[in-house]
Design a protein around this nucleic acid. Sequence first.
RNA 1: CGGGGCGUGGCGCAGCAUGGUAGCGCGGCGGUUUUGGGAACCGCAGGUCGUUGGUUCAAAUCCAAUCGCCCCGACCA
Length: 452
Amino acid sequence: MRMSRYFIPTLKEIPSDAQIASHQLMLRAGMIKQAASGIYSWMPLGLRVLQKIERIVHEEQIRAGHLPLLMPTLQPAGLWRESGRYDDYGEEMLRITDRHNRDLVYGPTNEELITDIFRGHVHSYRDLPLTLYHIQWKFRDEIRPRYGVMRGREFLMKDGYNFDVDKPSAIHSYNRHMVSYLRTYQRMGLQAIPMRADTGPIGGSYSHEFLVLADTGESEVYFDSAILDLSFEGRGVDYDSREECARHVDEWTSHYARTDETHDPETFEHEVPASQRRHSRGIEVGQIFYFATKYSAPMGAAVANAKGERVDVHMGSHGIGVSRLVGAIIEASHDDRGIVWPPSVAPFQAGIVNTASGNPMTEAACDRLYRELATSGVEVLYDDRSERAGAKFATMELIGLPWRITVGPRGLKSGQIELVDRKSGLTESFAPDRIAGELRDRLSASGLANAS
RNA sequence: CGGGGCGUGGCGCAGCAUGGUAGCGCGGCGGUUUUGGGAACCGCAGGUCGUUGGUUCAAAUCCAAUCGCCCCGACCA
């Protein structure tokens, strides 16, 4: 992409409405524009990141054997009356009336709709286990939206629902989700810690939240620092193996880690040595629930078991805040110059900066490099504007692309083009005919195989 | 919903006390000179001062209502 043909309305000054780094940076980098309180337009650059995250979530869900579908944003109120939540959910649920005076709700979540789909088509234990999920916009009329996309009213969420014949298989679904979530966050360069959590209005018997540690997080968290040493890097998983999934879950839940909702100071002090006790803040980027027959019983979602008896299915639900993750990743990865994208979610992998616009030699070198990278599948943003070098550097650093290729007349004369690592600031020089290859090597080293 | 703050060009702000020509910086457009860390100069464009009503010869400024946005709190992916 040539920047002169793209649309990145950056801001030099910090918009006065933004309080936290991620919100400020998303506005300054031209990723989002507020339309109303808690409601945002996603500009081209922001959308690219959102879609990268979405794709990783899809890939990991599908890997775990879960099936994507797409349910509507508007839902009939009748289903919510049936489950009893039409009144229970409260003011947070946006209620709409259509021209025929029918009551609709803009879905804040989808337990009712998915249960309705299930009960209409699944009648036997032979069809189980089944996990359906989708990534769809939600609306929750929050009392006080804030922090940009971190607490919007409209937000993109992956929500999934598992249906199992009995509790042990529902627990396996729960474990499978925990593992798939750990893998998902790992791929985005995030450390998200599963913490025992309250079940809230979704209800149920148990639940974990996934938290990214950050000073600007809205949750207070208490945990054993030993959990910080765990990593899913490079682990393969057999999702069909109950034992293996349970083993991973045990490993990740054996250390004390709770939000303030479930925190118990006595247990904390009893279980965790003083030197390992941590108290900080965190951003909730996902949550998983097992709620047994809470929805299936009142809504009549039952199957025949192996003995021919009709039993209510055991369900769970699971959510990942896709749009919130954009903010959470920035909170976890930025510096005083701007965003530092983990390569897997960066809007472009690399940027090309011509430091001398109008110079035929550097322009020719940039054009050649741009074409070479683009045709070999590297997502590259070429800053071909006639700005001065300093302005281009500042823009590149603000929008946070992992690699910057700097082409200047001085270097070119001595046969050198620079490759700069956004995160470390490390600069290396290579011959013009080697630079694309060097970049591709680095991209594949960070697991981005589309570069080859 | 309770408490606080703010609405003036795309962004950041001044002007309002004491009514009388709407201003500054950034950004944008054109030109000249520049060109490795958000360039300098010259010129230009862009604002019903959130909205409605009132007071007044005259309202960005005073009064009232209303809408919107932000912050603190209770709630939440």
